Computed example of a mutant assay.
Amino acid sequence: MVGVTVSVLRGRGSTHNESGVGLVSDSAEVTQVTNFRKDKEEINKSIENFMYRGAFLGYDKETPDLTKMTENVTIYYYDEQNDNDKETNHNGTDSGYMGLPVVLNFTATSKFLKCSGTQTDVTLRVEECDKEDLKDIYHGTELMSYLFYMKAKASTERTFESARFKGWFVHTVSPDKVNATQTQAPDDTLCFLIRSI
């Protein structure tokens, strides 16, 4: 392996068991690796659709939807384990605040909202996952599919962008349907309201 460097990556506050080993060629660009650690949670929330008031985020089997019945949602908030709260583009320029890293759980279940697929074809799903597995989420792992960046569009409106598939958002299709859509210009179809139950 000529021209290859072995580097050990360790997030701030990590132990020797949480290190990662990476191979970097002489010509490769070194980028910051972000890992996430669960910080706190808010239970008994509902996520109301901004466009269709009275329609709440819910699910039917593995398909997320909008329902007239309020679904209890637990929002898990995560701390980013890196040097700053901003994303850096591949060219090193600051692209701005991404939002709060969160995981959305349907309270009292092991069902979570998740984006899966490829960067060009993302599906929004509801899947079961062991809550213990989501305590720490490491960059580049399948668990990144459960992580969303929640960002305020206005004082009460929130958008949810996939952390694994940048540029893909939870999107309102109709009064009873949500999916993932790719956009660079967020509009009201991406907005939701967090309500206390």
Rank of each mutant, 00 (worst) to 15 (best):
Pro175Thr: 07
Thr172Cys: 04
Gly96Cys: 02
Cys129Met: 13
Phe169His: 03
Lys151Ala: 15
Glu161Asn: 02
Glu29Arg: 11
Val73Thr: 02
Asn82Leu: 05
Tyr146Glu: 04
Val4Gly: 05
Val2Ile: 14
Tyr146Pro: 09
Asp65Gln: 10
Val21Arg: 07
Ser19Met: 15
Phe160Glu: 03
Ser25His: 12
Asn89Gly: 15
Ala154Tyr: 06
Thr88Met: 11
His90Gly: 11
Leu57Asn: 00
Thr189Leu: 08
Lys135Trp: 05
Ser110Gln: 15
Thr109Ser: 14
Leu100Val: 14
Asn49Met: 07
Val33Asp: 03
Gly11Pro: 15
Tyr78Gln: 08
Phe112Lys: 03
Val33Thr: 15
Thr67Cys: 05
Lys135Asp: 12
Ser25Arg: 12
Ala154Gln: 05
Thr181Leu: 14
Tyr78Pro: 12
Leu57Trp: 05
Leu193Trp: 09
Met98Cys: 00
Phe36Arg: 02
Gly117Arg: 00
Arg158Asp: 04
Thr15Ile: 06
Lys153Pro: 07
Thr15Tyr: 01
Arg53Asn: 09
Ile47Ala: 01
Ser95Pro: 02
Arg195Val: 02
Gly58Glu: 09
Thr63Ile: 15
Pro101Glu: 02
Thr93Val: 05
Gly54Glu: 00
Met144Glu: 13
Lys177Gly: 02
Cys191His: 10
Ser110His: 13
Asp65Ser: 13
Phe106Asp: 01
Ser174Tyr: 08
Asp26Asn: 10
Thr15Trp: 02
Thr118Pro: 10
Glu161Val: 04
Asn35Met: 04
Ile75Lys: 06
Arg195Asn: 14
Thr120Arg: 13
Asp176Phe: 11
Asp121Ala: 15
Glu128Gly: 06
Gln184Asn: 13
Tyr59Thr: 09
Tyr77Phe: 13
Thr183Ala: 10
Lys111Ser: 11
Thr172Met: 03
Ile75Gln: 01
Thr88Pro: 00
Tyr59Phe: 10
